[in-house]
Design a binder for these strands. Structure first.
Length: 287
DNA sequence: CGGAGTGTTAGTCG
DNA sequence: CCGACTAACACTCC
């Protein structure tokens, strides 16, 4: 579900709420989502403090006060929802939880309770997500295996060009390859290709100088804009405060199969499959 | 009812 | 090494 902008939105929301909070207890209802021995996991967290929350690609890294790190990956349908008392606070404007939005619900597989009784719920319908405690050495190895991180100094046009020139896989697939470029997923990869007027199935190493430059710009622009809009809600993604992201209104191609192109007004948005994933593009203004 | 599809990625196989 | 494909799971849609 969440891609870089959604995970970043969750990170920012959580930082303001749980940094420096002490974990009083942890309840694990689905042990298979925890990649440590259950006992070790709980022992490491109980009584610990959350010092900071970082993000690499779509992975959240909770920095604990004793040089250990809690990794949380939400994969397709994971959520992290913070709850204080009966209200889920968000943006300084607390609102009541609706009657049908009880927490925990049947997808709440791990529940953190802090010493002031506030709680963090890890919900995951499809149960692909995971939680893992690691020491610094393993953390560094995991972070190292990711490719260049957009919106950082590492993400230069030169690096980007270099990656594209070395692969003949479809550009959209390459954009989603976390070992190359870290953080883009299925929605934003289609959007980036549209923005640069590049057909998503073009082999990456056949792209022209200008197309590469436009793709590079589009990555930066779209990710920044999406973060500013607090991400994209397609089905049921919500941020850490149970709110929907508003970038969905700005999507140009994803989920718009059969509709007129918003840019050229001539073409139609077509849905195809590239490497087993859905891809959308305008059949008139993308080449 | 059955089958396809869903925002991710680790693992496998050629 | 590279690249393509699949499984992990629960639910919705046609």
């Amino acid at each position: 579900m969440p891609e870089l902008p959604e995970v970043e939105t969750i990170r920012r929301d959580l930082v303001s709420r749980i940094v420096n909070k002490k974990i009083a207890s942890v309840e694990v209802k689905k042990p298979k989502l925890v990649k440590n021995k259950l006992k070790d996991f709980i022992n490491a967290l109980k009584g610990n403090k959350i010092r900071d929350i970082k993000r690499r690609a779509k992975l959240l890294v909770f920095v604990l006060s004793d040089n250990k790190y809690l990794l949380i990956h939400l994969k397709m349908t994971g959520q992290l929802i913070f709850c204080q008392g009966k209200a889920i606070t968000g943006g300084g404007h607390p609102f009541a939880v609706s009657k049908d939005w009880q927490l925990p619900n049947k997808y709440s597989h791990v529940i953190f309770t802090f010493s002031n009784n506030s709680q963090l719920f890890f919900n995951d319908l499809r149960q692909f997500g995971y939680l893992k405690i690691v020491e610094e050495k393993e953390l560094l190895k995991i972070l190292n295996d990711y490719g260049i991180e957009p919106l950082t100094a590492d993400f230069t046009l030169k690096n980007f060009k270099n990656i594209l020139s070395k692969s003949r896989t479809a550009i959209k697939t390459l954009l989603m390859d976390q070992k190359q470029i870290a953080g883009l997923g299925n929605i934003y990869a289609s959007e980036v290709c549209f923005s640069a007027k590049v057909k998503p199935d073009r082999p990456a190493n056949t792209l022209k100088e200008k197309e590469i430059k436009d793709l590079y710009r589009a990555c930066n622009l779209i990710l920044k804009k999406a973060i500013a809009k607090r991400g994209t809600t397609v089905n049921n993604y919500v941020d850490a405060s149970n709110r929907q992201g508003s970038f969905a209104k700005l999507l140009q191609v994803y989920g718009r199969a059969g509709r007129k192109c918003r840019r050229c007004k001539k073409g139609t948005i077509v849905k195809t499959r590239i490497n087993n994933r859905s891809a959308y593009y305008c059949n008139y203004c993308q080449y």
